[in-house]
């Protein structure tokens, strides 16, 4: 395996300093969080950064906090393993914990961060569909200030986002949600967490006692240049009583909305078919409660 080549290496102690470094040193710089995408890009894809700005010495960028208004803030440097195992996230948003658990091995998830998973803007990122489905807002900071943007509007294409080179994703905020919100994230990938998603589907909705579904969000990963909402599929279920037939119809609609490509993992046609199947199962699984274990999570995709 190719080795990384020399670069200048900075470890700023504040966000301002970190952002200023990118401004002052110009193009060719990269921010470093967990390194599980950046270092692999350097080793495998020939990325040659001139300089690297390690964000891990900036205090206050990691941790999960419940705010008084019922929202939950997650620091950008919070590792995916921390999210996967967080009692608060597992209780309120088990499908989000599940999406974090779908990324690589435990060794990877001990390094990989939620902010990195978003900032890298991979169309197949496992946490993105769940975050978009939850209506999460990203806080982006630079030396000149801070702005907030819905994660749904964050992605612009593979590896492309709304962030400028000197901007840093610092935090994400999950807004307060209804007490009867349910959800499911399905990563469809035969090698599970050790490979990228062929198709990712997050389905989230409020489930009433009579099984009426409202606030339906269906978000697809790995089947378009960015994560996309399947809005027509959402409309199929909105305000309706959940049934297998309706979930099937929503799945077929989501399949029509997907814009997949063919690559080494899968043909576009297969991806489209799997969007239909996995959307249906995600919608139905969400109503049955969170998966009890890894085997359960695996088995109920089929």
């Amino acid at each position: 395996m190719k080795r990384t080549e020399a670069f200048d290496f900075y470890q700023p102690a504040t966000l301002q300093e970190a952002s200023q470094l990118l401004k002052d040193n110009g193009p060719g710089g990269r921010f470093l969080a967990g390194g599980t995408d950046l270092v692999i890009a350097m080793k495998e894809k020939g990325l040659l950064p001139k300089y690297i700005v390690d964000l891990k010495r900036v205090p206050g960028l990691s941790g999960i906090r419940e705010n008084s208004d019922g929202s939950i803030a997650i620091g950008a440097l919070t590792t995916l393993y921390t999210i996967e195992t967080s009692a608060l996230i597992k209780k309120k948003y088990p499908f989000l914990a599940q999406s974090a658990a779908e990324v690589g091995s435990i060794q990877i998830r001990n390094r990989a961060t939620i902010g990195g998973n978003i900032s890298n803007a991979s169309p197949s990122a496992d946490t993105s569909p769940a975050l978009v489905a939850l209506g999460v807002t990203a806080t982006i900071a630079s030396a000149s200030g801070e702005r907030k943007i819905p994660v749904e509007e964050f992605f612009k294409g593979p590896g492309q986002s709304v962030m400028n080179a000197d901007e840093i994703l610092t935090e994400i905020t999950i807004p307060k949600t209804a007490a009867n919100l349910v959800g499911e994230y399905i990563k469809f990938s035969p090698r599970e967490m050790m490979d990228l998603a062929y198709v990712g589907v997050a389905a989230v909705y409020n489930l009433a006692a009579d099984k009426k579904c409202t606030g339906v969000r269906i978000v697809l990963g790995a089947v378009a240049p960015t994560p996309i909402r399947a809005k027509r599929a959402e409309a199929v279920l909105e305000g309706q009583i959940l049934s297998e037939a309706l979930a099937e119809k929503a799945g077929q609609t989501a399949a029509e909305e997907a814009k997949p490509i063919s690559d080494v993992r899968s043909s576009a046609d297969y991806r489209r078919a799997m969007v239909g199947t996995m959307t249906k199962r995600a919608l139905l699984n969400a109503a049955t409660g969170p998966a009890k274990s890894w085997y359960d999570r695996r088995d109920r995709r089929y």
Binding site: Q11, G35, T36, V39, I52, Y81, Q107, I108, N110
Partner: peptide
């Protein structure tokens, strides 16, 4: 590339892939 785990070491009490960590960190 962080797929096989042969390079696993403990860093601050947590298992990590040493093939993806820069000495600068």
């Amino acid at each position: 590339t962080g797929d096989c785990g042969a390079c696993t070491v403990m860093m601050n009490g947590k298992p990590v892939n040493s093939c993806l960590i820069l000495s600068g960190e």
